[in-house]
Design a protein around this nucleic acid. Structure first.
Length: 336
DNA sequence: CTGTCGAA
DNA sequence: TTCGACAGG
C-alpha cells in the first residue's frame, strides 16, 4: 500500500482549527509500544498497572489542543468475523514476543529485549475504559464505533464532521476517507528564537483523490488491489505485489474479472471483504464538542490513581489554558 | 512519545 | 539557545 500512495508534508499550523478523527486503538498501541524503558519495561504506577498509554494520550492530546487542533478519538467496536484469524495470529505473535523478551532479558541483551517487548504490547479493556475517562476529563470527544474504528473515522471525514483521519495504517483510505494523516505527533518540537513559535517534524498528508487520480483507478479498484495484496480480513494472492495488482486491475477492470481470468482462489468470501470496505458498519450516534479540561478530574485519574507528577500535569494543563485564552482574544476560531 | 535538565 | 541523554510511572 505504501508504494501506491503519495504523501505531502503538512505543517501543524495548517491543521489548526481542524477536526481530526484519530484511530484511538492505533494511537494507544503506539504509546504502549514506544513509551518504555530501554529494557522494554512499561511505565507503571505503584501497584504495577501499566500507564504508558495514559502518558502518551495525555501529553499528545494536550499538544493538539495547544496547537488549536480539535481531536476526536474513535474506538473500535466488535471486529468483523473475518478478522478472527488475524486477531488470533496477532495474539500468538505477541505471546511469542513475550517469551523472546524474557529470554533476551536473561541474556542481558537490552536492545533486543526492547524490540520484543514492543512486539508484545497489548491493549486491555481496562486501558480502553480509563483512556475514555481521561478524554472525558480533558473535554475531548470520543466516538464508539459499532465495528472498525477506521471505518467510522473515514465516515466522519466523508460526512464533513472531521477534516481527516489520523492513523499509521492505510486502511482508512480503503474505507473511503478523503484525507489521511500519518505520523501525527509533535515530537522533535523545538522553540524558535523569536517567540513561542515552534518548528516541528511535519506529519504527512495523503489525499485519496490524488492517489486514485495518479493511478487512474476508482476506490472500488483500490479496494480490489488491497484484497489482492491481503487485508486484515483476507490473505493476499501469493506472488502478487503492488505492481502486479495495479497492472491486473487496469487490465481487467474489476476484481471479479481478475478472479475469473486468473482463477485465483481466496479463503474468505471476496464479496464479504469488499462489503467491509465499501459498505462498512458505522454510526451517526455521536456529538462532537470540545470543553475546557476538568482539572480536578484529571488530577484524580493521573496523579491520585496512577502516580503522575502533579507538577508535570499542572504545567501541561496551564499551557492549554493559556492558548485557550489567546484564541478567545484573537477570536480566530470558537473553540471551547 | 514527550518533557526536563545539564553541557556545549 | 540548542542539543542530546535520560526519566517519566
Amino acid at each position: 500500500m505504501k508504494e501506491l500512495v503519495i504523501a505531502q508534508q503538512v505543517s501543524i499550523k495548517e491543521l489548526s482549527g481542524k477536526v481530526i478523527a484519530i484511530d484511538a486503538m492505533n494511537a494507544l498501541y503506539q504509546f504502549l509500544a514506544t513509551i518504555r524503558q530501554p529494557d522494554g519495561t512499561s511505565l507503571m504506577d505503584r501497584t504495577g498497572r501499566v500507564t504508558s498509554h495514559l502518558s502518551g494520550l495525555f501529553y499528545r492530546t494536550i499538544n493538539f489542543l495547544e496547537e488549536g487542533i480539535k481531536p476526536v478519538y474513535v474506538f473500535d467496536g466488535k471486529p468483523p468475523a473475518l478478522k478472527m484469524k488475524t486477531v488470533d495470529e496477532r495474539r500468538k505473535l505477541r505471546e511469542e514476543a513475550k517469551e523472546k523478551w524474557e529470554e533476551a532479558l536473561a541474556r542481558g541483551e537490552i536492545e533486543e529485549a526492547r524490540k520484543f517487548a514492543q512486539a508484545a504490547s497489548f491493549i486491555t479493556d481496562e486501558m480502553i475504559s480509563e483512556s475514555k475517562e481521561l478524554l472525558e476529563a480533558l473535554g475531548v470527544p470520543y466516538v464508539q464505533a459499532p465495528s472498525e474504528g477506521e471505518a467510522q473515522a473515514a465516515y466522519m471525514v466523508k460526512k464533513g464532521d472531521a477534516w481527516c483521519t489520523a492513523s499509521q495504517d492505510y486502511d482508512s483510505l480503503l474505507f473511503g476517507a478523503p484525507r489521511l494523516i500519518r505520523n501525527l505527533a509533535i515530537s522533535g518540537r523545538r522553540k524558535l528564537p523569536g517567540k513561542k513559535e515552534y518548528v516541528k517534524v511535519e506529519p504527512e498528508l495523503i489525499s485519496l483523490e490524488d492517489v486514485l487520480r495518479i493511478h487512474g483507478i476508482t476506490r472500488e479498484q483500490l479496494v480490489a488491489i488491497g484484497i489482492l495484496l491481503g487485508t486484515d480480513y483476507n490473505e493476499g494472492v501469493k506472488g502478487v505485489g503492488v505492481k502486479t495488482a495495479l497492472k491486473l486491475i487496469k487490465e481487467h477492470g474489476s476484481l471479479k474479472e481478475i478472479i475469473k481470468v486468473k482463477g485465483y482462489v481466496f479463503e474468505a468470501s471476496v464479496e464479504e471483504v469488499e462489503k467491509i470496505f465499501l459498505e462498512p458498519e458505522v454510526t451517526d450516534n455521536y456529538t462532537l464538542s470540545w470543553r475546557p479540561p476538568k482539572r480536578e478530574k484529571i488530577f484524580k485519574i493521573l496523579c491520585d490513581e496512577h502516580d503522575f507528577s502533579q507538577e508535570r500535569v499542572s504545567k501541561a494543563l496551564d499551557r492549554v489554558e493559556a492558548t485557550r485564552k489567546e484564541t478567545k482574544q484573537t477570536s480566530i476560531e470558537r473553540f471551547f
